[in-house]
Design a protein around this nucleic acid. Structure first.
Lengths: 142, 142
DNA sequence: AGATGATGGTCAGTGATACTGACGTACGGA
DNA sequence: TCCGTACGTCAGTATCACTGACCATCATCT
């Protein structure tokens, strides 16, 4: 199982590498694209990472001109991290396809039917975990 | 996908935590149990990690009395890392069950049939990757 | 046997990463 | 206005795995 992940991470990271991005960057861009502008905390929480880590992630994305920090007018403590035009364009035309082809490479051993099955099961594993404690607490702290 | 892994890692790591082990330790113990005594390099390679990292992994396991370093009589450069009686016993009676229950917790959202499907697909994704470049080259190097 | 190159294990040093804790700023309610 | 809380930032720290150098051992060639 951890092998499967290492494999996928490896494939995926090398797909993102040409763009100077890591998988986390892609996840953040996707989240903003899907859910609209969000605060750094929201982004951090929904990806199970620390808010201080999100600072540097957003720093990097901003430096690349892919996202933009604006204040949330309703709560001026927060940023509203939004995609720039360039960010949208890169995500749609480059990162999306790159991600799909990475996924394809990862799923190579499976038939189309099986791929669909796998994706469906995976999706349910991640999303159908209602009451159960999940998504927040990290396991680390050796 | 990466979420699924984080989830699993989290569940799994906290299942191993009471024994003072990390997932890598479990993987190594399992590999020795399955394939017999092996050198550190073999273990390192088969788990896609560095040989220098394996030193400290084995150090830890040896300190816990779970494995034993002996020289390989056929090649005295190598160790033959073997499980101790305690190692076997812990693996069989504690770690195994703990792993199964962690897996169970992870697969909670799925029906028994689906779990079996998922495991089968995952297994194939990891093992049926013959000619393709996979298993070694790490993606890191930020 | 002696020389040379390759492999296994070890260790100190390095680099990357993500966290802890403290700080300033902004909200919200009394 | 005061107090508690949430957001973002930064310096410091911990962890982790790797790089590079080293020695011991093996394998091969002469």
């Amino acid at each position: 199982m951890s092998k499967a992940n290492n494999l996928f991470v490896e494939i995926f990271e090398s797909a993102m590498e040409p763009f100077g991005l890591r998988s986390k960057d892609f996840a953040v861009l996707t989240a903003i694209d899907a859910m609209g502008p969000q605060s750094q905390q929201q982004l951090a929480r929904s990806h199970g990472i620390d808010r201080t880590t999100m600072v540097s992630v957003v720093d990097g994305l901003e430096r690349l001109g892919l996202v933009q920090r604006s204040r949330d007018p309703d709560d001026r403590r927060k940023y509203a991290i939004a995609l720039t035009g360039e960010g949208v364009s890169l995500l749609r035309h480059k990162l999306g396809p790159a991600m799909l082809s990475a996924l394809d490479a990862f799923l190579t051993p499976l038939s189309p039917d099986e791929r669909e099955q796998f994706n469906r099961l995976l999706w349910r594993l991640v999303h159908e975990r209602d009451g159960v404690a999940a998504g927040n607490g990290r396991a680390r702290q050796g």
